[in-house]
């Protein structure tokens, strides 16, 4: 599937990545090269094959019992927040 500048623009917006025109052009080329390469997967017969999203075997650890534990990282985290307002994180207003 060919990828064009508009598509790159769209996915960059979805991924919240600023793009300048030069980078957009470069990315069209690079992503096109990678996507042409992965095109080979279209040739694989996957009829009736279940997708693998995890590869663990055996039993997982038990689910967590519903017991509240200590939450004491606020100060350590807020101290290194890029911006804060008292005990809140602060961000530019959502437009």
């Amino acid at each position: 599937m060919p990828i064009d500048a508009g598509t790159v623009e769209k996915i960059a917006a979805l991924a919240r990545l600023e793009l300048d025109p030069a980078e957009r052009e470069r990315l069209v080329r690079e992503l096109q090269a990678i996507l042409s390469y992965v095109e080979q997967l279209q040739a694989v017969d996957v009829t009736g094959i279940e997708p693998t999203s995890q590869v663990t075997e055996g039993d997982p650890p038990p689910l967590r019992a519903d017991v509240a534990g200590p939450c004491d990282v606020r100060d350590e985290v807020l101290a290194q927040a890029p911006d804060r307002d008292g005990d809140y994180f602060r961000v530019p207003k959502v437009v």
Binding site: R64, D66, V67, A68, G69, C71, V73, R74, V77, L78, G86, D87, Y88, F89
Partner: peptide, 28 residues
């Protein structure tokens, strides 16, 4: 529940801001 769905922080309503947080629910 007493604790959150994916971490042990309390679910109590009305606590002071950001006092019921841990690395997991902060998405660190």
């Amino acid at each position: 529940t007493q604790s959150k769905i994916f971490c042990p922080c309390s679910t109590r309503f009305g606590a002071p801001p950001n006092t019921q947080v841990c690395p997991v629910c902060l998405g660190l």
